[in-house]
């Protein structure tokens, strides 16, 4: 065998180094026949059968995505309340901070570390303009209230939306039709025009891309998430972060179970109530991943396999015959 001719010439015998030298040099002891290509072909056959079998028997999930049309039709009150919050700049997206806008103090920080602000406002979103006013302006006959809204001062706009949000929350079922009379300016008119637009299925195109190819669904997804309808559906499917949702798939299909540790931190205190939970947990996971990666150099951890002798099982034939 060529392997033998390539072996290193043994230096002076140093009993204490024997084990290490055995690890390093090419193996010079007994060998067994081993067919790499045969193993590969067998593996391909077994894994192929398993894959096709599981695909045929179990399949894969495909629940249709939620559309703005569906939201506006099924939960119009929630849609109107959300649209009002977008107009007034009080929605989650409006106050998110980078990369969507520069809301003060909104980014997740850890001491002096503020990675979120570091990237800057890369995907600028003005919720009033981008989610409500802009789409309405694309209509063939924009609502008359638009001109009033555009001419109003910021303070006036805030007063209108705050008053209407308040009134909606007090109305029975949040129903816009049952809102008490008040000074809401053009806000109810804009909301209802947007609602009709969404119910007709015209809002998605106006939000993301318009006439361009709709590859980027950022605004649609953010708008959906600002309401309670979409998160409610996710909650009923156990998909939200505080119910191990990161690992889960719809129905009973297995999801990304390898994210169990990432998901785990979001379930337990103090992490589940931290404002900067995402940053802290990503930090923990980066550290743990580095620890796993550099395990061979970490005293103590790298000795665990010696202390818990599972290798005695794996190499039991070898130890028996030594």
């Amino acid at each position: 065998m060529t392997t033998i001719s390539r072996r290193r010439t043994a230096g002076p015998e140093r009993p204490d180094r024997r084990g290490k030298d055995l690890d390093r040099g090419p193996w010079r002891g007994t060998v067994r026949e081993y067919d790499l290509i045969k193993e590969l072909v067998y593996a391909l056959v077994v894994v192929g059968l398993l894959t096709v079998g599981l695909a045929a028997v179990v399949g894969s999930p495909d629940d249709a995505p939620v559309t703005l049309q569906q939201w506006a039709t099924t939960a119009p009150s929630d849609f109107v309340a959300t649209a009002t919050a977008e107009l007034g700049g009080t929605s989650d997206t409006a106050q998110y901070g980078p990369p969507y806008n520069s809301t003060q103090g909104a980014s997740q920080t850890l001491g002096p570390i503020d990675l979120q602000s570091l990237s800057g406002v890369r995907l600028p979103i003005d919720t009033a303009q981008d989610f409500v006013v802009g789409p309405l302006e694309t209509l063939p006959q924009p609502p008359a209230g638009l001109a009033v809204w555009n001419a109003a001062s910021d303070t006036q706009r805030t007063d209108w939306t705050a008053a209407y949000s308040d009134a909606l929350s007090k109305a029975p079922d949040g129903d816009p039709a049952k809102v008490a009379a008040g000074n809401y300016g053009p806000v109810p008119g804009l909301d209802s025009a947007l609602l009709v637009m969404a119910q007709k299925g015209a809002l998605e195109g106006a939000l993301d891309g318009g006439t361009a190819a709709g590859l980027d669904r950022t605004k649609t997804v953010l708008f959906l998430g600002d309401g309670t309808y979409f998160p409610g559906l996710a909650d009923s499917q156990h998909l939200t972060g505080d119910q191990w949702g990161m690992m889960n798939e719809t129905g009973n299909y297995p999801g990304q179970s390898w994210l169990w540790l990432f998901s785990f931190w979001y379930q337990i205190p103090p992490f589940n109530s931290l404002a900067n939970a995402d940053l802290v947990i990503v930090g923990i996971m980066v550290l743990l991943t580095l620890a796993l990666m550099f395990l061979p150099f970490i005293p103590g951890l790298r000795s665990i396999p010696r202390l818990i002798p599972i290798h005695r099982l794996i190499w039991r034939d070898y130890y028996r015959r030594r």
Binding site: S119, L123, L224, G225, P231, V282
Partner: peptide, 30 residues
């Protein structure tokens, strides 16, 4: 589908928190 739509909404927070959300925009299908 619904699952990917929800992941796109939820996963943005961790990515934005570490400042990569613009280059790894989970809601941008393309």
């Amino acid at each position: 589908n619904f699952d990917s739509e929800w992941i796109a909404f939820q996963a943005k927070d961790a990515l934005n928190a570490v400042g990569v959300g613009a280059w790894f925009n989970v809601a941008n299908l393309g």
